[in-house]
């Protein structure tokens, strides 16, 4: 199987490569349009800032390449957020595969209000949180309330494409799915056994449309 990891300015791809390596899976890191189009599965990682990343993707027309893919795509963290319509992070128009909007936790927490007697939540959320309402083969074998590792200040709101939910002051999308596109807010490559299962499911179970 031909697995491609998209190379751009906002991704620490090494951890993803090592995670695949532990499963005996080789992957190619590239920004070559043809190689991305011909891949069986595409992983779109991301750690960084939305507007800088989008600008980089647009300059290389990688945003359009991604959007036009028919094979399964897995966005991770910022990768997932960039697949949404819009991010509050520096007011950025994103790729627009998922209609869900990406908001900042602090603003949302202020809207929701802080429960009496509790400490204000720190932003970014850093650490292990549980995911629930799990849907699609991406989460096969992963039980409800499994812990996964997250590092993020922005989140995708719940919407029709939500396939996993997590809670930090409010419920948000821990994963999204639409047609051949999947996105996870957490880092499956750093989420111990549960994360490894998600990656394995993406590689082995998610059907190539």
């Amino acid at each position: 199987m031909n697995i491609v990891i998209i190379k751009y300015n906002a991704g620490n791809v090494q951890s993803v490569l090592y995670a695949l390596e532990r499963m005996g899976i080789a992957a190619t890191v590239t920004d070559d349009h043809e190689k991305i189009r011909s891949a069986d599965k595409v992983i779109f990682p991301g750690v960084g800032e939305a507007s800088t990343a989008m600008q980089y993707l647009r300059e290389r027309k990688l945003d359009q390449v991604l959007k036009d893919l028919h094979r399964p795509v897995l966005g991770i963290c910022l990768g997932m957020q960039l697949m949404c319509a819009y991010s509050e992070e520096n007011n950025t128009a994103c790729i627009g595969i998922f209609e869900e909007k990406v908001r900042h936790f602090s603003a949302a927490h202020a809207d929701v209000g802080q429960p009496a007697g509790e400490e204000p939540l720190k932003v970014p959320q850093i650490g292990w949180n549980n995911i629930f309402h799990l849907k699609t083969p991406l989460f096969r074998g992963v039980h409800e309330n499994s812990y996964i590792y997250l590092v993020h200040s922005y989140y995708a709101a719940l919407g029709e494409h939500t396939i996993a939910t997590a809670h930090y002051g409010l419920d948000f999308s821990a994963a999204l799915h639409k047609e051949n596109f999947y996105g996870v807010q957490f880092h499956p490559e750093k989420s111990a056994a549960a994360g490894a299962q998600v990656i394995r499911n993406f590689i082995e179970l998610v059907p190539a449309i």
Binding site: Q14, Y18, A19, R22, K190, A192
Partner: peptide, 9 residues
Amino acid sequence: VARHINIPF
């Protein structure tokens, strides 16, 4: 070390 661990480092 990184190759062998599936948690943040």
